[in-house]
Design a protein around this nucleic acid. Structure first.
Lengths: 138, 138
DNA sequence: CCTTGAACCTCTAGTCACTAGAGATCGTAG
DNA sequence: CTACGATCTCTAGTGACTAGAGGTTCAAGG
């Protein structure tokens, strides 16, 4: 197994420029090169890049992933840190869900109150303009 | 009323550099200047900037806000466009909530399955590494 | 009138995680 | 040996700001 970057890309579903970007920021090690200077990859890189992609899909930030990858290099250590990274991330997502849910409720009320008339009497525009005064006071 | 930028900032709770940034991208008109070259603002700018802030709090993008502001300049027009901007935004937020909720469920299951042992047997690390194969197949 | 110091000015660069494009070189099938 | 797709490096752009350097203006107190 001695894969070119395009083949690695196909197997991991990570785009070629993204792979190069990950190398540039040190998330992937600098790949060995062919005689002509093209990157060549082995099975470890496939695994590592798959890990990165899955973690990104789960919404982890690059720095968290860096940390998680460091941890997997020390498999006998306690998984306490991995656990706390994941818990922190979970709390962050829950906070974002709460924020977005509040927004959704507000927007959905606005949209339902719109009488489809003219701008000057539109509840949507009105609510945005008066937001701070009328209902919330934040 | 002839406000300096700091006073405008205080009244609208928009930071000074952000106000300058909004001017730079054309979201706020170029403010008239004092003799020494400092920006001075009147009541219209307070209103406009409040509108911008409220719209940002509701998660609208700058381009949408630009559009909404254009609409408020033509108050006799139909509010059809405002309505569709708001609906599109609402749909977008609902999609993001759905995505985040799916993430939350997955993360929360991962975290609850972690036995607080060693990395090599940690469900969190394992799930990230095997994500594609084990349960989803996407 | 003069000084002080907070507030203001412009300009550049950094954030995050990529993405796009230009222009050149490599690898391989026919 | 030639074509041509894949690869290379490098720079710049995205969105919506934020941070900092280095200089100027304004208003109040002495």
């Amino acid at each position: 197994m001695n894969l070119a970057i395009g083949e690695l890309s196909r197997r991991t579903e990570v785009k070629v420029p993204t792979i190069r970007y990950y190398e540039q920021i040190g998330l992937l090690p600098a790949a060995p090169r062919s005689e002509g200077g093209q990157r060549r990859y082995g099975p470890d890189e496939v695994k590592r890049l798959n890990f990165i992609r899955h973690a990104r899909e789960l919404g982890f930030e690059i720095d968290d992933i860096r940390h998680l990858l460091d941890l997997t290099a020390r498999p006998q250590d306690s998984c306490h840190e991995a656990d706390s990274i994941a818990r922190r991330h979970l709390a962050d997502i829950e906070r974002r869900i709460a924020e977005l849910t509040a927004l959704r409720n507000e927007l959905s009320r606005m949209v339902s109150e719109c009488g489809h008339g003219r701008i000057c009497e539109c509840r949507i525009v009105e609510v945005i303009a008066d937001h701070g005064q009328c209902r919330h006071g934040h």
